[in-house]
């Protein structure tokens, strides 16, 4: 698993992985909801760095825009509109916590075993495109144009629905 030579990618991977996992664990352990959202933003930014390491610059940019920007702000708004106590309230009972931990750890064990025991075929040496964003744009408007348009319809419907749901009903 860790048999590569100590290349730049490996170093960047470990730094970013430590950053990301620290953010995720903090997200679970902090008590104030706003701090949780902040650590979630740290996870998003760490993942964006990971995409840069994976030569997916456009996806990294979208990740920063949508997740670290829009989704985090939306979560903060959600907390502002709903919060009345500072922390997240009394903790859950013992039983759900133990069951949740059991489920998460067993899933991690299964995934770990599956990843370790799979022989991944070596990647075919395909020359990555020089201009990543240009190639993604070409693909989006040729091969994937129907899903692309469907996503625009989905976003419109979802946001109109969100406005309708969250609207204050004034006329009684």
């Amino acid at each position: 698993m860790f048999t590569g030579d100590l290349s730049g990618e490996l170093i960047a991977f470990f730094i970013l992985a430590a950053f990301t996992i620290t953010g995720a664990v903090l997200m679970l352990t902090l008590t104030k909801v706003v701090h949780m959202v902040l650590s979630l933003a740290a996870v998003f930014i760490g993942l964006a760095g990971m995409y840069v390491v994976l030569e997916a610059e456009f996806v990294a940019f979208v990740q920063v825009l949508i997740y670290a920007g829009a989704v985090s702000i939306l979560m903060v708004f959600g907390i502002m509109m709903t919060k009345h106590q500072e922390d997240q309230g009394r903790p859950a009972g013992r039983m759900p916590e133990v069951l949740g931990l059991l489920a998460a750890v067993s899933l991690l064990g299964i995934l770990f075993y599956a990843i370790r025991s799979t022989a991944f075929p070596a990647a075919a040496q395909v020359e990555q495109a020089e201009d990543n964003t240009l190639e993604i744009g070409k693909l989006l408007f040729t091969q994937h144009v129907i899903p692309f348009e469907l996503v625009s319809v989905l976003l419109t419907v979802a946001f109109i629905g969100a406005i309708m749901l969250a609207r204050k009903e004034t006329d009684e």
């Binding site: 996992i21 995720a24 997200m27 679970l28 759900p96 770990f112 990843i115």
Partner: peptide, 23 residues
């Protein structure tokens, strides 16, 4: 496999949070 492991860890942390948090 390193990337897959990191993704698995993140997924399990998210699963634990989704199952146990009350807010």
């Amino acid at each position: 496999p390193s990337y897959l492991m990191l993704a698995a860890i993140l997924f399990c942390i998210g699963l634990y949070g989704a199952l146990t948090k009350r807010n």
